[in-house]
């Protein structure tokens, strides 16, 4: 069973000169931590937006846990996925608890069960003493951790993280990565996008590298590195497939 199946996905935004996706295909196994990697403009954000039903592909097929992403299944799929956007998608003038209560309520959670879940995650992420501080007083790492909690309150089966460790200190990064490993152990599939390829190499069991709207390679992280004797690590593999040209 796959967590995500993407087949021949095409997408051109209105008014855009170039298509964002040009026949993108890949699949990720259920229960794995996988990396969706690519340089700027490769189509990662567009792919994630299609996966979670935010925008529609022009053509192609997407399945999440074998459910086709269409109008019928869109809401059900939203309930299966937790998205951690790159931005800190929180209300800065609400406390962490108020933010989490609000997003929990939107997921239909309420009362003691919501409160106990919030307390539990605040504890896991080391925020239990800061739950009643307004988010704009938080450090970058604390904001990132709260951002993750907001995406897992409803206990999704698939967690998609867009650069979850961008701009955080070593301690916060270590905590986040350890949490992802632990969370994955509970059976949750995790899709991870990042430009920090050493981090991706450490955490991802499998990666798909996409460039210019197509998947250029996909496979087990260790095997991919081993497949290219000239490559010492995932970054070398990445550059091998995507080249050294700047993507401004």
């Amino acid at each position: 069973m796959t967590s995500i199946l993407v087949q021949d996905l095409h997408k051109t935004y209105k008014g855009a000169l170039e298509p964002s996706l040009k026949g993108l295909s890949f699949s990720f196994p259920k229960g794995a931590i996988v990396g969706l990697l690519g340089p700027n403009g490769a189509g990662k954000t567009t792919t994630i937006s299609i996966l979670c039903g935010l925008i529609k592909a022009d053509t192609g097929e997407v399945q999440i846990f074998d459910l086709p992403q269409n109008a019928t299944n869109r809401e059900a799929i939203k309930g299966l996925i937790g998205i951690v956007p790159q931005q800190i998608a929180l209300f800065p003038h609400l406390t962490a608890v108020e933010n989490l209560e609000y997003f929990g309520n939107l997921y239909g959670l309420k009362g003691k069960s919501l409160r106990s879940r919030i307390d539990e995650y605040l504890q896991v992420f080391g925020l239990e003493k800061n739950g009643h501080k307004q988010v704009h007083h938080f450090s970058g790492g604390m904001k990132r951790r709260t951002n993750i909690i907001a995406a897992i309150l409803h206990q999704p089966q698939l967690l998609v993280l867009d650069e979850p460790t961008a701009g955080v200190d070593v301690q916060s990064r270590s905590m986040i990565l350890q949490f992802l490993r632990d969370y994955n152990q509970q059976g949750v599939s995790i899709v991870y996008t990042s430009h920090l390829l050493d981090e991706a190499q450490t955490i991802c069991q499998e990666v798909a590298i996409i460039d210019e709207g197509r998947a250029v390679v996909q496979g087990d992280t260790t095997e991919l590195i081993a497949r290219h004797p000239e490559c010492r690590n995932l970054e070398d593999v990445f550059l091998h497939y995507t080249g050294h040209a700047l993507r401004d």
């Binding site: 979670c52 935010l54 809401e75 059900a76 939203k78 309930g79 996925i81 998205i83 956007p85 790159q86 931005q87 800190i88 998608a89 929180l90 209300f91 800065p92 997003f103 939107l106 997921y107 239909g108 907001a150 995406a151 409803h154």
Partner: peptide, 18 residues
């Protein structure tokens, strides 16, 4: 701009209610 609208739209249920 801060992405909270995106988060709200990613949550199942009608945005109209929000």
């Amino acid at each position: 701009e801060d992405g909270s609208l995106l988060r709200m739209k990613l949550i199942p249920g009608s945005y109209l209610a929000i």
